[in-house]
Every structure is written in structure tokens, then in C-alpha cells.
Write a protein that binds this DNA or RNA. Structure first.
Lengths: 232, 232
DNA sequence: ATTACAGTGTGGTTAGACCACACCGAATTC
DNA sequence: GAATTCGGTGTGGTCTAACCACACTGTAAT
């Protein structure tokens, strides 16, 4: 077993045992190195991996944001991983879109009216109405979809949703350039969002799921991404 | 921007541009360090991250398995990430099980008879019939479920399925100790597997999906995991 | 009371060295 | 001639020892 894996194992145990909790600080790199009788290099490699996994965040200096603290951001971490695999051409974008439809439909069907996330979703829709910049609009759009997923109350589905969106974020930005008429598309997207949210708030899960599926598939189809292109 | 992130960016570009493909070798660490005008340490931190993402595999020595080569194993990488987040208690096991039901039901419904993965699944079932050791049985069980997911032809869903199973692998092993009568459970599981595979091979997606959902939920319920316990 | 500044501890980066490993090839041996 | 032995070479793995930038803290000078 390689040295940095030993460090990883030790930290994972601290987490499992509850000795290290969300918001808590890891010992300094030099301290851990001495305690575990390894070099600081190996400790750093372990911390790098945890950082890539969205389990910790490292900050220099001293005070509030300093040190290596435990966080919980699986979404961005999974997103980076998926993005890299998309780069290797072994995760087709069409499969990502398809999975997104699957997860979001399920979330829309399962979400129940009244949860806080739906309030946030409604707020985001209001802000999208007055947003002119395309990139800013897409950012709000992403947050709306994540909020919708969170309304289902499943942390794993939320994280996966966020990661899927993140993995093809750049891709989505480029797609808007393919659209024949952005302003028309924008109006349509806003209307569809309203309809989806209304269905969820009305506890009409079946309708909400169908609307979400059509919403996502419609966007990518209009932008020129086949729903199921040939695979190699 | 930190130095190792620059290295990551460079490697990701090589992947995106197709200059680095599956099975290809990265330049040696010393070479990359010189080319990018950074220290070998920074290169190594980047490689560590890619390794944790399941994008590369590093091997010492020389020859066939030596050097840092590009691979495509998103499943195990996502699994490790999820496992760590489960350790931080921010991804409830119940949510993972629920997500597994969602993904596997979809895969079972979508799988079409005739694909190679189903042949492998049938072979695995035969081997499970003559397997006495519990751990070995569970390993075959895991492979059966992954094969079933692969039959749907969506690489993202397959990867996520594998990762979910991996994230709670240890957990599943412990659960078998809670079962009142393993041999009885084992017989039941085998029968359910056969029924699921038969439904898929019969292109009866709806039945297959329902059987899969009942199969998974039944196991965890019998082992004492609530389908949706209280969250903190 | 305010300001200026040295002190301290954090992660970030670097250079240089040594190790174990696996192959390759030449020299040696049978 | 074939088999064996043994350096040579290049790979990642590890370690040490420094220095840097940063952000706060406490003290000293104003």
C-alpha cells in the first residue's frame, strides 16, 4: 500500500468515527506527517485527493478560512470527474443528458409542495425573467434545476444532478450559439419552467415529470444534440 | 491558480484534443515537469487527482504495466467519493439505496433482449447457484446487477450504478449478519434474479423494473434498513 | 487610541536525493 | 549455441529541507 493511501485511510477513519465532522479542521500538514510517521509530501497527496473529492477545502494564511477544513460538496467533485471522462470520449454527452432526464423526472414526480427548495426555485424564476445576459440566464437555469432536484429530498440524486449539469456546463454554453433564435427559446424555456413548478406545487407529480422530460429533451434537440447518437 | 491545477488543465486539454487517448501513456513525471516548467511535486499532485478520478493508472517499473496510462474507470472513482461522503454522514445510506432502485429499475425497463451483457448476467446466475461462500456470492451478485445496468446501454447509468454499489459494499457485507436465515434469503434472491432476467429477456420491461425494485427494497428491508429513516 | 511592525502558523512550491521495481542487453557460463 | 547472470536504465514512490505568500496576533512606537 502506498504511503498516501495510508494517510487517506487514517483520515477516513477519523470521519467514520465522528472525530472529524463537517466544518472541522484537520491537523496541520506537518503535524499529521509527524503523527503518522510519513513525509509531508505524502500527507499533501492525500489532502489533494480529498480536495478533489469535495471532502475538504484547503486555505492558506490563518484565521477563519485558513487550514484544511471538512466540507461536503460531492456535486462539484463528481462533476469534475465526469467532465474528465467526457473528455476521454468514454461518457457520451447523450448518455449524460439521458441520465439527467431520468433523475430530474424522478425528482419532479417525487417532490412535494411546501419544501423550502421550491420557494428558492420560484425566486430564481423571477430573477430569470429580468435577466438579459445569456450566461447569467443559464447559471440561474442550472440553479433552478438543482433546486427542483433538492425538493425531492434525496441527497444522492441532488448531488448527481448537480454533477451532471456541471460536467456539460461548457457544452451547454456552446450549444446556445447553435440556436436559431435565442430570444424565442428563452421565452419558451421560461414558460416551461413556470409550468413545471406549478405542477409540482399542485402535487401533480406525473405531469411535472413529463414536463421536465420534454423540457430537457426539447432544449438539446433544438440545439442539435441527438437523443441517442451512434456509439463506437 | 495553483500549480498542480495548471498541470491538470494541460492534461485535460491533451485529452480533449485527442492527443491523449485511452490506453495512451502520459510523458514521464520528470519530462512533464520540465515541459511545463513546474516541479515534479506539482505534476505528481495532478496525477494523484487523475488517479483518484479513475482517469489514469500509475505503475512503476518498465514495460507493459509501467508508466502512467489513461484508463476509463469512473465507477470505482465515483464509488470512493460517495463512500467518503457517506463517512461524513452527509449522504444517508437510505438515499443511496433509493437511488439504486431508481437507476436499476430504469435500466431493467430499458434493457433489450439480445445484448451481450445479458449473456454475462445469465452466466453469473449459474455460478451463483453453486457458490457457498457468502462474500463470494455477494461479489457475484454485485456483478450481476452491474451487468443488468450495462444492458441498458447507458455508460453514465452503468458507472453510477457501480459506484453506488461500491459505496455501500462494506455495509452490505455487514447487513448479511443481521439476516435471520441466510440460506433461505439466498434461495429467494436466486429465484428473484432468475425472474428479473427472464422478464428482461422477454422484453417485458415493466415487469422487470417492478421485480428489480422489489428485489432491492426487499433485501434492505429484511436486513433492517428503513427505506426512508429520519434525517438529521 | 491609533498605527506600524515583527512574530507565528498555515498551505504552496521547489530542488535534490534515494529507493524499489521491471525490463533490456551484454557478458559470462555451461 | 543456449542458458544464465548481472549491470544499466527509466519508471513511479518517498523523503528531507528549505523558502515563499498569506493572514492573523500581539506588541511596541506614535
Amino acid at each position: 500500500m502506498r504511503t498516501h493511501e495510508l494517510v487517506l485511510q487514517w483520515i477516513e477513519k477519523q470521519l467514520s468515527d465522528g472525530d472529524l465532522t463537517l466544518g472541522g479542521r484537520l491537523p496541520g500538514e506537518r503535524t499529521m506527517a509527524e503523527q503518522l510517521q510519513v513525509s509531508r509530501t505524502s500527507v499533501r497527496e492525500a489532502v489533494r485527493i480529498l480536495e478533489a473529492m469535495g471532502v475538504v477545502r484547503a486555505g492558506v494564511g490563518s484565521g477563519k478560512d485558513a487550514g484544511t477544513v471538512v466540507i461536503a460538496e460531492p456535486g462539484s467533485a463528481l462533476g469534475s470527474t465526469l467532465r474528465l471522462h467526457v473528455a476521454t470520449r468514454h461518457l457520451p454527452v447523450a448518455d449524460i443528458v439521458e441520465t439527467r432526464v431520468l433523475l430530474e423526472s424522478w425528482a419532479a414526480e417525487r417532490a412535494t409542495a411546501g419544501v423550502p427548495a421550491l420557494g428558492e426555485a420560484a425566486d430564481l424564476l423571477d430573477r430569470m425573467d429580468s435577466e438579459q445576459d445569456i450566461d447569467a440566464f443559464l447559471a440561474l437555469d442550472a440553479r433552478f434545476h438543482v433546486a427542483l432536484a433538492e425538493a425531492a429530498g434525496n441527497a444522492v440524486v441532488s448531488a448527481m444532478m448537480a454533477s451532471l449539469r456541471g460536467a456539460i456546463e461548457n457544452y451547454a454554453g456552446e450549444l446556445t450559439e447553435n440556436l436559431p433564435d435565442w430570444s424565442a427559446t428563452c421565452v419558451r424555456l421560461r414558460a416551461e419552467h413556470r409550468a413545471i413548478l406549478a405542477a409540482v406545487n399542485n402535487n401533480d407529480g406525473g405531469t411535472a415529470a413529463a414536463l421536465v422530460a420534454a423540457h430537457i429533451q426539447g432544449f438539446y434537440k433544438e440545439a442539435g444534440v441527438g437523443s441517442n447518437p451512434a456509439r463506437d
